[in-house]
Amino acid sequence: MSLEWRARSTSLAWSNPLAWWWGLLTLVSGVNIAIWFLLYGRLRDQPGGALGGAPGIGLMLLLCAAYVFGCALRSFLPRADVQRICLFDTWLSSVVVGRSVATVAEVCFVAQWAVILHPLGLMTGADTTLNAAWVIVPLILIAECFSWYAVLTTNYLGNAIENSIWAVAFFVVGIALCRLLPEFDGRVRVALAMTVVGIAFYLMFLMTVDVPMYLSRWRAVVANGGRHLHPLEGLRDVCTRWVVTHDLAEWKGEIAWMSLYFSAAVWASLALCVVYSLQDDLPRYLTEATVAISAPDTAAVVSNPPIPTTGL
């Protein structure tokens, strides 16, 4: 059985590695959607709260849904914004649609981290973690502005700055989680340590692969005397122009980050829902010193944890 799509005199068949890559993205996204529905069913049926066992779990599931389904759409219809390239000739492949979906999804993803960090900071009395919860959403909103600037003007420098801000935001998250390590024992401390390691690998990828790639593209355009679009000119361009290409060379620079983004990052979003649903169990993993200092505050946080809404 062969797979073939016709678009602007190009075709994509199973002999093309892009077909296998697209098929893998689609499969992973389908599984991610199934996991979200499974989590929704399980957490909805738990006692306590309007939805699930933990107060605010409904909001967490909603934020996760925006990220899971947003990434799924971008997996089904891959595109590269600045280059205006895509795999399928459909208006859903337009940059303005894809970038808008990505903006909402990414803000919701970082909001999940804020919703997780805030009650943990209150539970342990960790001001560093509390401050991180309030800072990361505004940081990502700024990053999204640079992303849109890059997309509208076709200036890769905006992408480099955007991803640098993502690195700063998750460096802050990593510091916040490190601050929590001495406050917990047992499996919670192990989970925190594993998350910090995962963030460290993410930061390494950003600073050694992603940001240098965009800086290299920016320098190449400048060296060749390339012209950047005016933002208003770019707005019309992102609404009307998308170029279908099945040339592996055109996609080579996008495959690595897209593959990680639409798999590991989505798994992190789903995992945050699971962690949040277990927050009632977290106090029993607090160290004795932490319990002695923050026992009254811990009870209040568990019964009704405040949810940061900055940027939402």
Rank of each mutant, 00 (worst) to 15 (best):
V101W: 02
W20C: 02
L272Y: 11
L61I: 14
T129I: 14
L181R: 15
V110T: 11
R84T: 04
T287G: 02
I33G: 02
D297A: 11
A167R: 01
L59K: 12
S216V: 06
V190W: 11
T310Q: 10
A265Y: 15
R189S: 08
L180A: 08
S94Y: 12
D281P: 00
L139F: 11
V137W: 00
W267I: 10
A167H: 05
T90F: 00
Y40F: 15
S15V: 00
G98M: 06
N16K: 07
A167L: 13
L203N: 08
I293L: 13
I175P: 01
W5F: 15
A72R: 03
Q112N: 06
V243C: 07
V274Y: 13
G98K: 04
V101R: 01
I35V: 14
A65Y: 07
L260F: 14
D247F: 10
A265D: 13
C178L: 15
N163L: 07
S94C: 00
N163D: 14
S164F: 15
E254N: 11
G186T: 05
D297V: 01
I161P: 01
V197R: 00
M213D: 14
R241E: 03
F184G: 08
N32A: 09
A220G: 01
W267M: 14
F171D: 01
T310H: 09
N32F: 10
L272I: 13
S259W: 02
A295S: 09
C145A: 14
A126E: 12
A54W: 03
V291N: 05
E288C: 00
S294R: 15
E288V: 09
A160H: 07
E250L: 11
T124H: 06
T298Q: 15
C239E: 09
R187M: 08
Y202D: 04
L122W: 11
S277Q: 06
M60G: 03
L286E: 06
L120F: 08
A160Q: 06
W148S: 02
A143T: 06
I165L: 15
L235K: 02
L229S: 07
W134H: 13
L25Y: 08
L270R: 04
G158I: 14
A105L: 07
V95K: 04
M213L: 14
N224Y: 00
Q279W: 10
I199V: 11
I165F: 14
A295H: 10
L77C: 06
G30P: 01
V221P: 01
W166H: 08
D81R: 07
C239R: 14
G58E: 07
G121N: 05
W218H: 13
Y214L: 07
A150V: 13
F170V: 09
M207R: 03
S2E: 13
L270D: 03
L206Q: 04
V222D: 04
R217E: 09
V168D: 01
A271R: 10
Y156V: 00
D45G: 06
V172R: 10
G158E: 07
F201V: 12
L25M: 14
P55F: 05
A271L: 13
L24A: 09
S93H: 06
L77R: 03
D81Q: 07
